[in-house]
Design a protein around this nucleic acid. Structure first.
Lengths: 196, 196
DNA sequence: GTAGTCAAGTTCAATTTGGAACTTAGTTAT
DNA sequence: ATAACTAAGTTCCAAATTGAACTTGACTAC
């Protein structure tokens, strides 16, 4: 993704794609250093930089869309989970996931859905042999990209970052689900935005 | 957003929406604590939790879609920026922004586009009086939400977090734009994912 | 100046998306 | 057991999204 390259005066000699080398908008500088919400900008920006190339690689290599791969990834971490669970933890609406699951089944990446795990009429989804294979092939790429993203940090710094972010996420249990108006109705509110 | 509530045993007595109180999937636990990419999961998850309610509030209150508000926000930080700049820093494709700009003009939130600022045939976009008003009304909400998100951290911890994330973002200049296959062509590659 | 090049912005068309309504299957109450 | 309720998953369709092609205007070289 082009939104990435150098900020202003640093690195001039590095031979590269040429066109989008140094002409990075001042706007980026402004968003980084004069943003009233510097934290969330960084979060969003990093998510952008991380997700874009990876999912476009997944698409090109395996013909899977983002939400389809997300199903695979989710089940790899919590096999037997339901569509609902994936929706809750990823932010994709349930009908999108319904379609994704159907397609993955068709492709033989999931086993036939078994019946209820926890409550209600939930369906337990499981990866097939083939699904696991795909996951095992792809995780390393995701891992190495995360690794790469963290390159500028020392071991200790990574640990601290991890702890701080964990704190924030855990704390989120309190504030999420009641802000401005959102969440008025109790139903599953998924407007936009996704997670792996 | 429902993906938010309590993890497992904490907070039982807090009277709430009832239905999505404690039934948060184990999947979330797995994604948080057994994820091969713990850092990027946190990033994506927080982005989800932060963006969803805010943009849905913007939508309800001002009738602006996310990418439309992003234009406002971007120009507020870098007035006179071009559509290209916004695309580069936000991840939205340029045609989407083209439409957004058109609509914002129609709504009187932008001034008439002036000619070239930097190079080529770039158009300088500027907020109108009305646009500024809207921005000034809304930023506080965004700010307070960020504040709220950071509640669990002390002043010092926030500072550290800010520094670490800045390091990562600045370092991104090197790795972004060359991973798996992505970026093969030199052109503006915007597949999916957005930033404020 | 005129031709050629380049990229910013726009338009078009095909696909994708997700809200709303619906179906289906558990669970609870009577 | 039957009825009423609840929520998971699915279908439908109108609306939104975006890749690709195109247009436009500015710089460059001759």
């Amino acid at each position: 993704m082009s939104a990435a390259s150098g900020a202003s005066e640093q690195k001039i000699g590095t031979s590269e794609s040429a066109q989008d080398l140094d002409d990075l908008p001042d706007m980026l500088e402004a968003k980084l250093w004069e943003n009233p919400c510097p934290f969330t900008f960084r979060i969003n920006y990093l998510a952008l930089l991380y997700n874009t190339p990876l999912y476009s690689w997944i698409q090109d290599t395996y013909g899977l869309k983002r939400h389809e791969y997300v199903v695979i990834y989710s089940l790899a971490l919590a096999n037997g989970g339901s569509a609902r669970d994936i929706s809750r933890t990823s932010g994709f609406p349930k009908n999108t996931l319904s379609r994704a699951v159907k397609r993955l089944e068709l492709m033989g990446l999931l086993e036939e859905r078994s019946k209820a795990p926890g409550g209600g009429r939930r369906q337990a989804l499981r990866l097939s042999e083939k699904g696991w294979k795909l996951f095992n092939e792809t995780v390393p790429v995701f891992e190495s990209y995360e690794e790469r993203m963290l390159t500028p940090l020392s071991k200790g710094e990574r640990q601290i970052l991890f702890e701080l972010m964990s704190k924030v996420v855990v704390g989120a249990e309190d504030w999420a689900d009641d802000l401005p108006q959102a969440g008025a109705k109790g139903s599953t509110r998924n407007t936009k935005g996704e997670t792996q």
